[in-house]
Design a protein around this nucleic acid. Sequence first.
DNA 1: CCAATCCCTG
DNA 2: CAGGGATTGG
Length: 762
Amino acid sequence: MVGSGVVSASDSESKSNVLRKLLKRANSYEDTMMPFPGTTIISQLLKNNMAKNGGPERGERGDRGDRGDRGDRGDRGDRGDVGFPGSGLSNASSDAPQEDACSNSSHDSTPQECLSPFGRPPGLATFDIERLNDEHLRAKRARVENIIRGMSHSPSVVVPAASRHEREHEMDRDREMDLDCAPPQSQQQAPSSPRGGEVCSSSSRENKRKQRLPQQQQQSFTQLVCQRKEQKQEERRQLKLQLEDMQKQLRQLQEKFFQIYDSTDDSEHNDLHNDIGNMSEDSPARSDTGGDDRGGDDLRSDNEMSDLDPGHFLDRARALLQEQAMLAAREKPRREGLSRSKGQGGPGSSMHAEGKQLAETLKQELNSAMTQVVDTVVKVFAKPPRPTPQQAFPSLSIPPERFPTTVNGDNPNFHTTNQRLQCFGDVIIPNPLDSFTSMPGMPGPTNDQTEAIPLVVRKTPSEHHHHHHHQSSAVGAHGGHHHPVLHPSSLSASMGFSPPSFRHPFPLPLMGYPFQSPLGGPTGGYPGKDRSSPDSMDLSRETTSLRTKMASGHHMGHHHRSCSPAHPGSTAEGLSLSLIKSECSDLQDMSDISPYSGSNIQEGLSPNHLKKAKLMFFYTRYPSSNMLKMFFSDVKFNRCITSQLIKWFSNFREFYYIQMEKFARQAINDGVTGVEELGVSRDSELFRALNMHYNKANDFEVPERFLEVAEITLREFFNAIVAGKDVDPSWKKAIYKVICKLDSEVPEIFKSPNCLQELLHE
DNA sequence: CCAATCCCTG
DNA sequence: CAGGGATTGG
């Protein structure tokens, strides 16, 4: 567990780092910082500030996230199935991608960037003016920024940011592989459910979180209550840790700020410290040991924050930055000719006064913001654990006689703990079992009835527009449902128990494919990743998509109750955590109530998916199912979806080869004698035919490699026909074998659910 | 046995 | 493209 000792240690470390970083300001700091989940809001804001200032880091963005993450498909057999599910993920650092795989490298709309919790505030445009001639201020701001950065990396994080980021990648890869290879989980039977296939079941992996189970587990019912209480306290403790970190950072920011502006008014300084100290009276060290019976404390400030949400907080912070900018701009003319280095030696008094004023404002704003954050967090945990009238914790509803006696030899605590944890930490993964049942080779009752369901779900244009609206506005500051500060990914990042799915949302495809919903159905089983996009917390989007799915539902007729309106009070809470919690309980209910809910609301493949698949065909003719899962990570994969995608590519190939054969024969009929005369260029008939099919709108630049492959294929056919091999009924198979080795890497951008927009926009 | 593919049809 | 039967390979 992250103890206070760790915090202080990294704290001192950060301070020393600060000095070093002040000296050598790395241009690339944005890269390392951007994807760091623990980045605080302050540093985010400051970073945005810097970006607006036109820092040199602008050009480096495209590099991020474009690294060919995967490679090594050469040895894949002519059958696409590598049999090793994780193979597509395994070679993180290997080969440089092939030439065309880089065609999108300069594209700078990586998922990470979309994740930036808030857009550039329009008000900061004033920076553009001063940016031209105010070197001093920029340098100053840069220093502040560096300070922040130094601090933001340290608290409660023992691992250096960079390696840590890498490690999370690794972990997730492992997790995915585990997921794929995992043996069938013991399907747990909820007492109320006639068939238990989709009832809440957590893999033991997700149970890594400290399982401190008391010894007297025989006191089943009351014991469970106690455990839950402890869990809650544990989480609260973690949150407080995080809070303290933020406070620490704030304090350091204050100090550095004073240094920079040479404002050495100690009284105010101390005031602020006192304020912060007051706020953090619930110190983590204390709650670590004590921990019980402190709910009253947490409730104390509930009423102060009725209208509070992180959006508000962001607004305030943004206003703060604007204020800073204004002050600095006014200050600029006076500072002309002043000594540039103003470490501790006091420059002019006017500057002093203004700096002081600025410091005052900053402190106030920071203070209030901090207070709000604290209150918000506290409120979350003061919130009753059962937000919905339905049963949020199925473990509690299990008849008591079930656990005390170890029936069938399995540990009763396993179930209950899992279920409980699922409702707590792993709330983002509503039903992990669903991920399992969707894997190939996983026999599951939930898959059976999906067989005959039409797979392409066509949404109405209005709904489409709706989604777009949400997407575009999601980046903005309309702060209702976006909670960058307390977003799970940033929260859990510094917590000890981060549930797997909270981690590293960045390099992975985000949710929100134009027609698709982020969180899928009630069990929303994505293949174990990418569900931490801020958008995925968007309540209205979620409900919309649910509604969409049900409206378009092809007589999936199993009546699950509508879950759209079923987030009581979530918006009022304005916090993703609570939102998730309530959502979890809802999902829990779904699985408990409706035996078919597991695969009932399935995500169909939209026309856009088809389009994307066609474009992908330009790169890969024989994608493995695992590859497809990776590139269509926004669909809930089950047997049908997989089959359909594979069928698509099979159809693509069919058409492709038919064209090849046709044109080869045509060439022969035209008197072509040698393959040298056969070429495939962008204006050849063959290419036009192919492009017509896979890229009808011609809005995608077909990679050069595809032309080469097409040419090779054409020549293969030509040679085979000329050689008279076509008498053999299976003469094409040899050609297939050749062609299947010519697949190239699909650019990373295709993993993004929004890749169509990004690809076709260029 | 199952997944992937081929082949054909509509 | 989708469905469906046949085939193949693990």
